[in-house]
Amino acid sequence: MSDIGLILSIGVIVVGLLWLTIRSLTGREVERRIIFLFIGISVAIPLLFNITVSEKATPIVKGIYDKVENLPSGSKILISFDYGPSMAPEVEPMSDAFLRHALAKGHKVFIMGLWATGQSLGAAAVDKIVKPEFPDKVDGVDYINIGYKAGNQGVLNVIITDFRKMYATDVNGVDLDSVEIFENIRSLKDMDLILCVGGGFPGIKEWVLFAADPGNIPLAGGSAAVATPLLYPYYPKQLIGLLGGIKGAAEYESEMKKNYPRFADMPTPGLNMMGPQTLAHMVVMAFIVIGNLSFFFAKRRKK
């Protein structure tokens, strides 16, 4: 049944695009609402029929994976949730994957956020991943969520010298001086790796400028695709690796699935999302072609 639906809907897209292409030969433009409609359909269909594609990790993604993998168990990894719900579909798979990987490897995980929204998203990640999947991990011993403080990069400016100047307690109001995980932690410089997940301001760039660079702390991150090209100049010197958009997340997920039997059945939102992506990209490319065709034929006619 679903196969029939799939073939039917793909058929509709293909026939529709063909019709528009033929129409463009007379130099006619496509109205924007038709483009909107096609984009909507091309994203909805793979989602409804669950089409997936396979991925292989590129070196820039592998860089992070190997770093997390090669740090000795018990290393301190800080994950910063620097995004809001609106960006979450794209970057949440990354923070989820980082969290899972770090905990599975036995690292100590510190969660914080430079975005107000990051605090609750961090807490949600703990509820969604840590508690059900890693029941033996203890809050305050194996992981901690210290939450959000206002001040954007100013926060980094402060905690690079002293956490306690900004953070007195974790999100649950527990004094940082009383938790085991914070015993030998003074500042960001005591972290073995910082993983920033974001895509706006403040985000990875601010982490580079205000933490990794001045403090010489290894930094890697996951970024919304829009900000990723901008971060390439920091790779590989100032950034160990980078997950660019959902494709990066999908690559990281497939790497985890490949190497950890326990993650074979984990949810892979990144991989799942590559189906709609592929179709939507093709539709966009088709419209670029159609646009150029109508442009050329309109110009010819004028001559």
Binding site: P276, Q277, A280, H281
Partner: peptide, 10 residues
């Protein structure tokens, strides 16, 4: 484009 489509998927 990829990032933008992801948002719509969400």
């Amino acid at each position: 484009v990829m990032g933008r489509v992801s948002l719509l998927v969400g």
